[in-house]
Computed example of a mutant assay.
Amino acid sequence: MEKLLLLHGALGCQAQFEKLKEALADSYEVHTLDFYGHGTETFTDQPFRIQDFAEQVKAWLEANQIDRISIFGYSMGGYVALYLASKYPGKVRCIFTLATKFDWNEASAEKETKLLDPEKIEAKVPMFAEELASRHGAHYWKNVLRKTAEMMQELGKQKALSEDDLAQIEPPVLISVGDRDTMVSLEETAAVAKSLKNGALLVMPHTIHPLEKVSLNRLIFECRQFFG
């Protein structure tokens, strides 16, 4: 049975994939993990970095004696998957990304980090604050926000993947974005899909950025279509 790894996004955790994992379990050996500092891997002093998350995935593959795997990466998880494929091409069979932001610069980083103020989130969207506390722990979710903001600021100064890095990625990659995603543009998504050796573009209809708002049935269908 084909092995499939689901990688969560920034501020996310592996628990978000429970329904997708269950739905695909009849066709794939589905795995999930929490990036360090997230979910069950709660507090850490280590900065959040795409490079280090990719090294974590590599170490996880080796610990589980998995030579090669297919990956679905949501948002940041997609960026991590592509970085892994660029540095360790033999580890990755193929990649399906959804809602991954590639157009990082100082302006876009500033725009996104403004949304990660824990005090404002508690005051204006308390239900989201409660959800973050549920995912990462009441004493740790603000740490996740702070470190995510710092990571975005670093990406704004220097992307983890250059255009040359993307162009060298060998495995087949399906790059997808929701047609109503206000964080990730169709233009940046299409540009990356075009730059890849074996890239393809998918636009998900009636889809905004949050994973919980993505049609589960549509996502299951697209996973089955791509992963085979």
Results as ranks from 00 to 15, higher is better:
residue 100 T to W: 06
residue 171 P to A: 03
residue 49 R to P: 05
residue 50 I to Q: 03
residue 97 T to S: 03
residue 21 K to H: 10
residue 56 Q to T: 14
residue 151 M to S: 11
residue 13 C to A: 13
residue 185 S to E: 08
residue 10 A to H: 04
residue 101 K to T: 08
residue 16 Q to S: 13
residue 79 Y to D: 07
residue 195 S to N: 10
residue 113 T to P: 03
residue 39 G to W: 06
residue 69 I to S: 06
residue 60 W to Q: 04
residue 117 D to M: 01
residue 45 D to G: 08
residue 11 L to P: 02
residue 112 E to S: 10
residue 169 I to Y: 11
residue 50 I to P: 07
residue 203 V to P: 10
residue 185 S to T: 13
residue 35 F to I: 07
residue 121 I to G: 06
residue 157 K to V: 06
residue 18 E to G: 01
residue 32 T to W: 00
residue 133 A to W: 07
residue 103 D to H: 15
residue 52 D to M: 07
residue 215 S to C: 04
residue 143 N to V: 14
residue 216 L to N: 08
residue 152 M to T: 01
residue 119 E to C: 02
residue 165 D to T: 02
residue 145 L to S: 07
residue 25 A to R: 15
residue 179 D to W: 11
residue 65 Q to K: 15
residue 182 T to I: 09
residue 170 E to V: 11
residue 122 E to L: 09
residue 3 K to M: 03
residue 171 P to W: 00
residue 46 Q to W: 04
residue 117 D to I: 03
residue 214 V to I: 15
residue 60 W to T: 00
residue 212 E to N: 12
residue 167 A to S: 15
residue 11 L to H: 12
residue 84 L to D: 11
residue 120 K to D: 12
residue 94 C to L: 08
residue 144 V to C: 10
residue 210 P to I: 07
residue 52 D to G: 07
residue 40 T to K: 14
residue 225 Q to S: 15
residue 34 D to Q: 10
residue 27 S to W: 01
residue 186 L to P: 01
residue 93 R to S: 14
residue 175 I to G: 14
residue 210 P to Y: 09
residue 131 E to F: 14
residue 172 P to E: 07
residue 134 S to I: 06
residue 160 A to L: 05
residue 214 V to G: 11
residue 128 F to S: 13
residue 19 K to C: 03
residue 228 G to S: 12
residue 114 K to H: 10
residue 187 E to Y: 06
residue 221 F to Y: 12
residue 62 E to M: 03
residue 43 F to G: 10
residue 154 E to C: 01
residue 99 A to G: 14
residue 47 P to R: 09
residue 162 S to P: 12
residue 211 L to H: 10
residue 32 T to Y: 04
residue 126 P to E: 06
residue 196 L to S: 11
residue 163 E to Y: 02
residue 94 C to T: 14
residue 161 L to Y: 02
residue 198 N to W: 02
residue 54 A to Y: 05
residue 45 D to R: 13
residue 39 G to V: 07
residue 168 Q to P: 02
residue 176 S to D: 08
residue 174 L to K: 14
residue 149 A to C: 05
residue 97 T to Y: 03
residue 65 Q to G: 05
residue 146 R to G: 12
residue 49 R to E: 14
residue 149 A to E: 08
residue 120 K to I: 00
residue 43 F to M: 12
residue 212 E to I: 08
residue 226 F to P: 05
